[in-house]
Amino acid sequence: MLSIENVTAGYVEEIDILRDVSLDVKEGAITGIIGANGAGKSTVLKTIFGFLHPRHGKITFQGAEIQNHQPYQMKEMGISYMLQEHSTFPELSIQDNLLLGAWTFRKDKKQVRQRLDEIYDFFPVLSERRAEKATYLSGGLLRTLSVGKEIMSKPKLLMIDEPSVGLQPNIVIEIYDLLIRIAQQGTTILIVDQNIMKALEVSDYMYMLDMGQVKQEGPKKDFEEDIREMIKVSLMAE
């Protein structure tokens, strides 16, 4: 579905964060990217979404080249991107947050209404507190709201950046269960996580990044076999 070919990218001139990275996201599967802090995991997502444009390489989504697109065009193409910790609008109500998630199809009022109801069904907590401002929500609820906002548009590909950061362990479990439910409904998921165990649990296929390069990739089975090795490597890198 999404394919990154030989991408080199960086924020500042002369410094490359990603070096000749290639990876594929298969449709219908959950793909995970793991690696140490600063390995470039978040940068991959930012580059896909257009916040960063690669210096070399190509990114293709369902056949179309997207490496030079602007971020706002991605949502319309079917890619949703849940940012790390900062995906919602603090002074807007939960409902307004979700409505902005429907921005790309806002003209179809019926569909917006319908989708909003579906999301409220999926997340009863959000429905109860729909008039409250997002800034009053706890970390876990904010994360849930972010997910809701991103799936309003029924994305083909949902990219998630570090969903477990700053959350209590029991909430992390809830969020991951949520992600699995979404994947079961047919959404392709690309997830970036420092939490190796969780990522391993949900991913069908994984990539390990180190210093901006893909060091290892493979189906879950292969990674399970090398898990001790991976933990050792990433602990040492930190």
Partner: peptide, 9 residues
């Protein structure tokens, strides 16, 4: 949220 609004399209 300048980034968040871009992810909304």
């Amino acid at each position: 949220n300048r980034s968040g609004v871009q992810t909304a399209g």
